[in-house]
Simulated scan of single mutants.
Amino acid sequence: MQYDIRPIRGRDELDLFRSLPYQLNDELDDDLAAGRRRPDWMWVATGPDGRLAARTAWWSRTGEPYLLDILDYADGREDAADALLATAMRAVLPVGTTPPAYTRFLRSDWRDTEAGGVRGRMAVAERAGASLLVERLRLEWRAGTPVRADEGRLRYRGFRDDDEALDLMTATLDGTLDAHSRADLASAAPREVAAEHFHGELERWPSPREWWRVATLPDGEPVGFVFPARNDYNPIIAYLGVLPAHRGHGYIHDVLAEGTRVLAAQDVPRIRATTDVGNTPMAAAFAAAGYVNFEREVVMTWS
């Protein structure tokens, strides 16, 4: 079948773009208004009848495509998705650059409820050159959930400066179980990986640095840190870690509790967080702190 493949012509075509279901449909208006999306990053494939056969879109926080986060097709229209993604990537992405990761939010029980659709979309991305990096847990603490009391084992303060933040972040990359960090470490030095995360993400969030915490022993020796923050959509535990020399003592529970207390004090309805399915110590810490796994996420990358 022949398809008309093109970017949407503006907000007037949002109804067409939204005619395939996905939870991000509700965010498109705000994302366009805030510059996190652009019409020329939102592509559709329509059939001879004018109906939507497939769609794809990128999201950004930097002015350049940062994530491919929408990839859908109507029943039986995998061919439309293949043609659409190939055409859109050629038009949107700079020649010679590595494409941004593809990410998809899923039901926590997706293998039982939507496996065919998920694997179909992943197959489209695979045929475009992507491969699975990781499956992640999307977690949520909800207002009214008890917060672990401060047991007094640790003290908390702000970071002295950016160099201290980078020093501590670099140290925690030793032995990390995070798939993104491990992939980055395959081609960059730990300090470079920490700097990219700090400058490219953490310091961009529209929330005060006063929320950030260094956890120390009573004598002042740093044990770990946590970055409570607010992204464009929710309060989040953006990043936390325990230094290698202090792992195995349960300090992750104390550090996570402090980050949760900082955000809960802002009277927020929820706090979001993510961790890899394979990072079982971190997943267990979130579960013990009352965070529920409300969704999963698959992340695919191009090399």
Rank of each mutant, 00 (worst) to 15 (best):
D4G: 13
I5D: 01
E13L: 11
L16C: 07
L20Q: 11
N25E: 05
D26A: 11
D26K: 02
D29Q: 00
D30V: 05
D31W: 07
D31Q: 10
A34M: 02
G35P: 08
T46K: 10
T46R: 14
P48M: 06
T56H: 11
A57S: 09
W59N: 05
R61W: 00
L68S: 02
D72K: 05
D75T: 05
E78C: 03
D79G: 02
R90F: 13
L93K: 15
V95M: 14
T97Q: 15
A101R: 14
T103E: 10
T103R: 15
F105G: 11
R107S: 12
G117Q: 11
R119N: 07
A128K: 15
L132T: 15
L132G: 11
R138P: 03
E140G: 12
E140W: 12
A143K: 11
A143C: 05
G144S: 08
D150F: 09
E151C: 07
L154I: 08
G158M: 02
G158D: 01
E164C: 03
A165W: 02
A165D: 01
T176A: 10
L177R: 15
D184E: 13
D184S: 15
S187N: 15
S187R: 14
V193Q: 13
A194C: 06
A195K: 14
F198I: 08
F198E: 05
F198T: 05
G200F: 00
W205K: 13
R213C: 01
P218A: 06
G220N: 08
G220W: 07
V226F: 00
A229M: 12
N231E: 13
D232A: 14
D232I: 08
I236Y: 15
A238T: 07
A238P: 09
L240D: 03
G241R: 13
V242F: 06
H246C: 00
H249S: 04
H253N: 13
T260H: 11
L263C: 13
A265D: 13
D267C: 03
V268I: 10
R272G: 06
R272K: 15
T275K: 08
P281C: 10
A287P: 01
A289S: 06
A289L: 06
G290H: 03
V292A: 14
E295G: 09
E297A: 09
E297W: 02
